Amino acid sequence: MMTNLFSVFDPSTSMFNLSINWMSTTIGLMLMPTMFWLIPTRMSSIWNNITKTLHNEFKTLLGVNALNGTTFIFISVFSLILFNNFMGLFPYIFTSSSHLAFTLTLSLPLWISFMVYGWINHTQHMFAHLVPQGTPGVLMPFMVCIETISNLIRPGTLAVRLAANMIAGHLLMTLLGSTGTSISYSILTLLIITQIALLMLESAVSIIQSYVFAVLSTLYSSEVN
């Protein structure tokens, strides 16, 4: 029984007293047919075209000084988030991307690695980023504080943005779905249509949010070169 609206995001489960809901993060890969991995099918061809497009776009964002293979890191992040976002749309499947434990695990190591690499190898360039070009001398101390704070909160904003967008859509669908047992058939038809529209919207949000996370991570990486 659901004690409150947010209990749909509770990672605990009563099955053998084990918290196995996090297995949905990777167990869905077992649902993919072996043909997807071994034989070039239409599904794999479409996915290859998507990854090629992302590779070209991330390569443009990173610039010519980026290390070879850097784009594949962000393509992998995009794929993982997209997979988990879509898995959360299925009934009775735990939405791991709606928890900060998942989103911070992705954003924090990326941001720390960017910072360590940038400050060790491009120290002068990193100091230059703290003061935007054309800033008056009087405002320089304030701009350093502002830029430092904005830099420190980047992993948090990445994580919270993804988790909040996943929570918002799922809460709305849960809230509307819980009223289905107490309304008339005429309103129920309208509710089902609304739920289908919301499901389509959430599918689009799942794609957009995974893309936004990957693009912002790419932009943060390009600033340290």
Rank of each mutant, 00 (worst) to 15 (best):
T123P: 03
T60W: 00
M35L: 14
L188Q: 06
E202N: 15
Y211G: 02
H55M: 04
R154N: 05
G169V: 04
M115I: 09
A66F: 00
M1A: 08
W119C: 04
L198F: 05
G137T: 14
A204P: 05
S76W: 00
L82N: 07
Y211F: 12
T148F: 11
F58V: 01
V215K: 05
F127P: 02
L108Q: 02
L176S: 04
S79R: 03
L139G: 05
T189I: 13
I187A: 08
L139W: 05
M140S: 12
M173H: 08
T71W: 01
G28F: 10
F213P: 00
L31V: 10
N21M: 11
E57G: 05
P155N: 03
G134Y: 04
S186F: 06
S19C: 08
L54C: 03
W47R: 14
G156S: 11
T95F: 12
I120T: 11
N49V: 04
F86M: 14
F86K: 04
W119R: 03
V64I: 13
T60G: 00
G177S: 13
L152P: 00
M32P: 03
T189C: 07
F142M: 15
S12Y: 11
F83T: 12
Q124G: 15
Y211A: 10
N49E: 13
Q195R: 03
F36N: 11
F16C: 01
L31C: 12
N21K: 15
M35Q: 14
T3C: 02
S7I: 04
L29A: 11
F90I: 09
L108Y: 02
I46M: 13
S150L: 15
M140C: 11
A204N: 09
F9Y: 07
V160G: 05
T218C: 03
L175V: 06
I120H: 10
V138G: 10
G88A: 13
I50W: 01
T70C: 00
V8K: 13
I167Q: 15
L108M: 09
F72D: 13
N225L: 12
I50G: 00
V224Q: 04
L5W: 07
G118Y: 02
F36D: 07
S186D: 13
T53K: 10
P136K: 03
H125T: 08
L31Q: 15
L62V: 05
M126L: 03
G156V: 01
H125R: 09
P136L: 06
I149V: 14
D10A: 09
M43C: 12
I167L: 04
V215Q: 02
V138K: 13
I112L: 11
S76E: 07
S19D: 15
L198Q: 03
I75D: 09
I153L: 06
L199N: 13
F6D: 07
I39P: 00
G88M: 10
I196Y: 04
A204H: 08
M2Q: 12
Q124H: 10
P11C: 07
A159I: 06
